[in-house]
Design a protein around this nucleic acid. Structure first.
Lengths: 136, 136
DNA sequence: TTTTATCCTACTGTTTAGGTAGGGTAAATG
DNA sequence: CATTTACCCTACCTAAACAGTAGGATAAAA
């Protein structure tokens, strides 16, 4: 299941990408337009800023803005920052690998085998999709 | 993330498929071999029986056994019984559809668009993989 | 009728998701 | 330089889901 955090984050990024000018947009404007709680969205945008996907400006006329062109923002980056691992089990994760404690031999594990395939097909989608593909 | 329930269920099914004879196997034997808590595995096998993937036999010499040939058991069935929806958001789920309450127009939603692609690529894996593909 | 092993309901502890609360800090404006 | 604006950051909270446990009921074989 995709968390609300990721879902809202994607919506916010799309909202920013859909604007013609890339000037700072206030949290409240995004929150209102996308039906997201102001405070929750604030914490999400903060995460995206720390992941270097968004820039921010304080004070009057401040807000958040994209740091890169939409077509340069890959879904792999976005999903990994907001959701964490893309793989369904840690033992097949490229960026968040962890060994299973119940599994003596990873290479003999049927779940491992299956989940590698799922990971690869999901990765293919995320690697071939940029923020620009989500806009209209 | 894949739940332990699904993970253990897959391991148990693979264990049964790897046996040369399809006679009833006790919970304890599977639990021991796969490092799964006996009681937890019991509840998982019960789920699989109710999903008509396993048969059971009570009393001495009893246990669980496959109801179909491994090559006839699709991953879509297994995952849906144990994990529930394959889609990452309910609004793109084929078998467990639900409308998002924050989304006025599904077709205009960027998350929807992306998640349909993910669902389709994951489905392709599960539809083309049977239990027989997980055995060795 | 005793033993074996599944069936089934209910309960419980831990973790995570999805927020809220409330003040701190930097920048623009006058 | 003071005020307003809007992001920055930590801590906290509640409900639900996950990952099991407990304990007995039931059915089949010996």
């Amino acid at each position: 299941m995709l968390s609300k955090k990721t879902k809202y984050g994607l919506k916010a990024l799309t909202f920013l990408a859909n604007r013609e000018e890339n000037c700072p947009v206030q949290i409240s404007e995004i929150a209102k337009s996308e039906n997201i709680s102001h405070k929750f969205l604030e914490s999400i945008l903060l995460t995206l800023r720390k992941a270097s996907l968004l820039g921010s400006k304080k004070g009057k006329g401040g807000g958040y803005y994209l740091l890169k062109e939409p077509q340069e923002i890959l879904m792999t980056e976005v999903i990994r920052s907001l959701e964490g691992p893309i793989a369904m089990v840690p033992c097949v994760s490229l960026n968040f690998y962890e060994k299973c404690d119940d599994c003596p031999d990873e290479n003999a594990c049927s779940v491992h085998k299956l989940m590698i395939q799922v990971r690869d097909s999901t990765l293919q989608v995320f690697r071939n999709t940029t923020l620009a593909d989500l806009t209209k």
